[in-house]
Simulated assay, not measured.
Amino acid sequence: MFKKRLYLLFLLWGVTFGLLALLPEGYASNHVMLVMLSLVLMVFFRTKINFLIVLSTIIIYGFGLTIYAQMEDIFSGGQYILIAAHLLLTASLLSLWLIVHDVKSLVEENKSLEERIGLLEKFDWNTKALSMPEFMERGLLIETAMRRRSEKGRLIYFNVKDSVPLTARDSLRHYFINTCLHTVREEFDLVTSPSQSEVFVFLQGTNTEGEAIVIERLKDKLREYVNYIELPYHITSYEIGNLKKIMEQFDHQRGA
């Protein structure tokens, strides 16, 4: 519907702009100059300002034609060409104003969609965890920063146990990721889940003691949702020295 309206506006503008060729040479050149000048100005301003530009141009041009008619003693039938010139310019500028408005709206909509796509690429909107590419990108940056500060970091790998029913894994995964996100530090630590059975937690500036505290917190919060004797996840942890190499090992294991 939006595109159809834009096509109709282009058609209307093309017709009115094309009819300028039927006017005497002086009128046609003035019209082209005014339309092009208005177009250039409208590119740089908002819709409301552009409407004022169009309205001012139409009014000033109308007064100009009136003064010209009086100076040249153009009356009765001779004024029809002036009226036609003014109507054509009015239609051309108004349709151009609508075109510029619609094109700008389309550009803004595309920018908004691109931003949303960018966010979708960074997050898994079902679980609110980071996507794996975003997890790796941020993790490598944090790893570099920790190395400069001579800090340690930990990577915790949670892998769901085979004893957990397949029908329960999806809901367990959602709750577990949510628990992880509320347990770790929001601005410092990272959480991702590349599959239904796996969750990675990146702890920045943390040693084994800090890691143990995080795991205990996770266990306590998970017990509020799941009645279990043992945690339904196998836990493996690594000291972060080369995050890329560690994650490549998991990729190889999945491919094996």
Results as ranks from 00 to 15, higher is better:
residue 25 E to N: 07
residue 28 A to P: 02
residue 28 A to I: 01
residue 29 S to F: 14
residue 31 H to V: 12
residue 31 H to Y: 02
residue 34 L to G: 01
residue 35 V to I: 10
residue 37 L to I: 11
residue 38 S to H: 01
residue 38 S to M: 02
residue 42 M to G: 13
residue 42 M to A: 02
residue 43 V to D: 04
residue 43 V to K: 10
residue 46 R to W: 10
residue 47 T to E: 07
residue 48 K to S: 13
residue 49 I to A: 10
residue 49 I to E: 12
residue 50 N to H: 11
residue 51 F to G: 01
residue 55 L to Y: 14
residue 56 S to I: 04
residue 58 I to C: 14
residue 58 I to A: 14
residue 60 I to V: 12
residue 60 I to G: 09
residue 61 Y to P: 09
residue 63 F to D: 00
residue 66 T to Y: 01
residue 66 T to R: 04
residue 66 T to P: 02
residue 68 Y to Q: 06
residue 71 M to Y: 07
residue 73 D to I: 02
residue 73 D to S: 11
residue 74 I to E: 02
residue 78 G to S: 11
residue 79 Q to S: 09
residue 82 L to M: 08
residue 82 L to T: 04
residue 82 L to Q: 11
residue 83 I to G: 09
residue 83 I to H: 08
residue 84 A to W: 12
residue 84 A to E: 14
residue 86 H to D: 15
residue 86 H to W: 15
residue 88 L to I: 01
residue 91 A to L: 13
residue 92 S to E: 00
residue 95 S to F: 15
residue 96 L to V: 11
residue 96 L to Q: 14
residue 96 L to H: 07
residue 98 L to R: 12
residue 98 L to V: 01
residue 99 I to D: 03
residue 99 I to L: 07
residue 100 V to P: 03
residue 104 K to F: 13
residue 105 S to T: 11
residue 106 L to C: 06
residue 107 V to L: 11
residue 107 V to A: 04
residue 110 N to V: 05
residue 111 K to M: 13
residue 112 S to A: 09
residue 113 L to T: 03
residue 119 L to M: 12
residue 119 L to E: 15
residue 120 L to Y: 15
residue 122 K to Q: 12
residue 122 K to S: 07
residue 124 D to Q: 03
residue 124 D to H: 09
